[in-house]
């Protein structure tokens, strides 16, 4: 059986919030080592990969691997019933039909428990190859979120260009064009504000801004986000989690 306790429900709430625009139904895979998820969006242009290692939980026990088929919208509704600061416990039997979600508010001595009906989710599990990326850029999540939001007011797509000078986001839409240039910088007092650019060779690719804005829903999970680009691979947008990560992959726009 699975029994997994998080000190703060906010972590799972934020994780589920950050994937619910992309994924409708998915399997949460629970194993001895932790909880993971891999799912594609309906249009098969983006893929989400989540890992929450067992050390990220206050208590974690999973005797044998369990697959929890979940409707993400339904899970969102149940998670909204708990407070951000509540202790959250997930429980499931070995062949579960429901996932039990318990919230404990220690200040008010309030315990609430909900059962989420599980479903069979037919999903192919794909391996993600180790990839040598041409460029990696780490920047503040708030900055990336602002860029994706601002450029989306002008256009549906963004061109990302990385070279040794820095990273440029630019777009050209019906009402006009825009661009933002970020140069590498290090901030010793506030390292989370630093911008780090690692480059093997310059790369320029275009992406759909709708998806980048969906990915930015994960901004509350980490101060920094890493973008990895290569001509031969989808864009990787990575947010580090306590003992894990949430990674979004997005195919570049082809043509136009």
């Amino acid at each position: 059986m699975l029994e997994a306790k998080l000190e703060q429900a906010a972590l799972l709430k934020r994780i589920v919030d950050s994937i619910r625009d992309i994924v409708q139904d998915c399997n949460f895979e629970c194993s001895e080592s932790g909880l993971s998820l891999q799912a594609m969006d309906n249009s098969h242009i983006a893929l989400v990969s989540l890992l929450l290692g067992k050390d990220g939980f206050t208590d974690y026990r999973c005797d044998r691997s369990i697959s929890l088929g979940v409707n993400v919208g339904a899970l969102t509704k149940i998670l909204k019933c708990g407070g951000n600061d509540d202790v959250l416990t997930l429980r499931a039997e070995d062949k579960p039909s429901v996932l039990s979600v318990m919230f404990e508010d220690s200040i008010q001595d309030r315990i609430s428990e909900y059962n989420l009906k599980l479903m069979d989710v037919d999903q192919e599990h794909m391996g993600i190859p180790d990839t040598e990326y041409s460029a990696s850029v780490t920047m503040p999540t708030a900055e990336f979120q602002r860029i994706a939001r601002d450029l989306h007011t002008l256009s549906d797509s963004v061109e990302i260009d990385v070279n040794k000078e820095g990273i440029t986001f630019s777009c050209d839409g019906d009402i006009g064009a825009g661009s933002i240039v970020l140069k590498p910088s290090s901030n010793i007092d506030r390292p989370e504000q630093s911008i780090n650019v690692e480059i093997v060779e310059p790369v320029t690719l275009s992406f759909n801004l709708k998806y980048l804005n969906h990915f930015c829903k994960a901004s509350g999970l980490s101060n920094q986000v890493t973008l990895r680009l290569s001509g031969e691979a989808p864009l990787l947008v990575e947010y580090k989690l306590p003992n894990g990560f949430i990674r979004f992959f997005l195919a570049p726009k082809i043509g136009d």
Binding site: S43, H44, L47, M126, G127, P129, A233, P234, A251, G255
Partner: peptide, 14 residues
């Protein structure tokens, strides 16, 4: 469709 193919090709290529 071409973007879908690219994503699927990338993940199946292992």
């Amino acid at each position: 469709p071409t973007e879908q193919a690219l994503l699927q090709r990338f993940f199946e290529h292992i």
